[in-house]
Simulated assay, not measured.
Amino acid sequence: MKRFLKEFKEFALRGNVMDMAVGIIIGGAFSGIVTSLTDNFINPILNELTGNAVYTKTEVLGFVSAFLSSVVNFIIMAFILFCLVKAINKLMSFGKKKEEPAAPTTKLCPYCKSEIPIDATKCAHCTSILEEKHD
């Protein structure tokens, strides 16, 4: 049972699953903006052009207010999700060993500036003899 729970935790907190969840939530919030745009701006314009309805300035201001409210809600939702994902990523990296950079395997020839193996004593490109470092 412990193994199952451990595997589930690794699956649920893996980057791809978290990215998908954030995408779904952002998509849902964005669909609210699109719905508001069509309901409050595009449909009234189409109705006005086709003569189906006449809107007063007060009603148009109400539509603008509703649309702006949807945009603000989307921004708030995106910010909250950003903070949550950042916190989860920080928790996931907590306790992990930082990878140390690998030791260099090449160096630059001091004469021709070509990349050569670190233990080379002669440059394969310009055939210069390299000085040995004595410790």
Rank of each mutant, 00 (worst) to 15 (best):
K2N: 11
K2D: 11
L5T: 13
K6I: 15
K6D: 15
E7R: 08
E7W: 09
E7P: 01
F8I: 14
F8Y: 12
K9A: 12
E10P: 02
G15Q: 13
V17W: 05
V17A: 08
M18R: 15
D19F: 05
D19H: 04
M20A: 14
A21V: 14
V22C: 08
G23K: 07
G23A: 06
I26Q: 10
I26K: 13
A29T: 04
A29V: 01
A29S: 12
F30R: 01
F30Y: 06
S31R: 00
S31F: 11
G32K: 08
I33V: 15
I33R: 03
I33K: 05
V34W: 11
V34E: 07
V34A: 12
V34M: 14
T35P: 02
T38M: 12
D39H: 10
N40I: 01
N43H: 07
P44F: 09
P44A: 01
I45M: 10
L46N: 10
N47R: 14
E48N: 07
E48R: 05
L49D: 02
L49V: 15
T50K: 07
A53G: 02
V54R: 11
V54I: 14
T58E: 15
T58G: 01
T58S: 12
E59S: 06
E59Q: 15
F63T: 02
V64G: 06
S65Q: 11
S65F: 10
S65N: 11
A66S: 14
L68M: 07
V71I: 15
V71K: 02
V72H: 04
V72I: 14
N73R: 09
M77H: 07
M77Q: 06
F79N: 07
F79P: 01
I80W: 05
I80E: 00
L81A: 08
C83E: 11
K86M: 15
K86C: 10
K86E: 13
I88C: 02
I88Y: 02
I88K: 04
N89P: 01
N89H: 09
K90L: 11
K90I: 08
K90T: 11
L91H: 01
L91K: 05
M92V: 15
S93C: 00
F94S: 05
F94N: 01
G95R: 10
G95Q: 07
G95S: 07
G95L: 10
K98T: 06
E99V: 14
E100Q: 11
E100R: 09
P101S: 06
P101Q: 09
A102R: 11
A102G: 00
A103K: 13
A103Q: 08
P104F: 03
T106A: 00
C109T: 09
C109E: 07
P110M: 03
C112V: 05
E115T: 13
I116P: 00
P117C: 03
I118N: 06
A120Q: 04
A120Y: 05
T121W: 02
T121A: 03
K122N: 08
C123Q: 05
H125F: 09
C126Y: 12
T127H: 13
T127Y: 08
S128K: 07
E131Y: 09
E132Y: 06
E132V: 13
K133G: 03
H134G: 00
H134F: 07
D135L: 07
D135R: 03
D135A: 01
